[in-house]
Amino acid sequence: MPSASHPDRAACPGCGKPATPAFKPFCGRGCRDRDLIQWLSDGYRIPGRPVEADEQDSDRNGLDS
């Protein structure tokens, strides 16, 4: 979503401020680093299919299905 003050520049996905060329699509190093930390710490996840109860038990026991 473009910023109201800079309609030709995209907003930072972290805070909504205008993106800067050096850190695009982020506004600065802080937002860029926070996003990287989210990726590295599994903060962003894509939901998968639900795990069945018997699959959970075999995973806990270290058994292959």
Rank of each mutant, 00 (worst) to 15 (best):
M1D: 07
P2V: 07
P2W: 04
P2G: 12
S3C: 15
S3L: 12
A4F: 09
S5A: 09
S5R: 03
S5Y: 00
H6Y: 08
P7W: 03
P7K: 10
D8F: 07
D8E: 14
R9I: 15
C12T: 05
C12D: 08
P13N: 14
P13R: 14
G14P: 02
G14W: 04
G16M: 03
K17F: 03
K17S: 11
K17G: 01
P18G: 02
P18V: 07
P21T: 07
P21R: 06
A22H: 06
K24A: 09
K24C: 03
P25S: 09
P25Q: 07
P25Y: 11
P25L: 06
F26R: 01
C27Y: 00
C27D: 05
C27T: 00
C27P: 02
C27A: 06
G28K: 04
G28T: 02
G28E: 02
R29S: 11
R29T: 02
G30I: 10
G30Y: 12
G30A: 15
G30R: 15
R32S: 10
R34L: 11
R34G: 06
R34F: 09
R34M: 05
D35G: 02
L36E: 13
L36W: 04
L36K: 15
I37A: 13
I37C: 01
I37K: 15
I37D: 10
Q38F: 08
W39E: 12
L40T: 09
D42Y: 02
D42M: 11
G43I: 07
G43H: 04
Y44I: 08
I46W: 08
P47V: 09
P47M: 07
P47I: 04
G48D: 09
G48N: 08
R49I: 03
R49H: 05
R49F: 02
R49W: 01
P50A: 09
V51N: 00
V51Y: 01
A53L: 12
A53P: 04
A53I: 10
A53Y: 08
D54Y: 14
E55C: 03
E55R: 13
E55G: 03
Q56S: 13
D57V: 11
S58M: 08
S58V: 09
S58D: 08
D59R: 13
R60L: 15
N61G: 01
G62M: 04
G62N: 05
G62H: 00
L63N: 13
D64N: 09
D64F: 10
D64R: 15
S65H: 12
S65W: 15
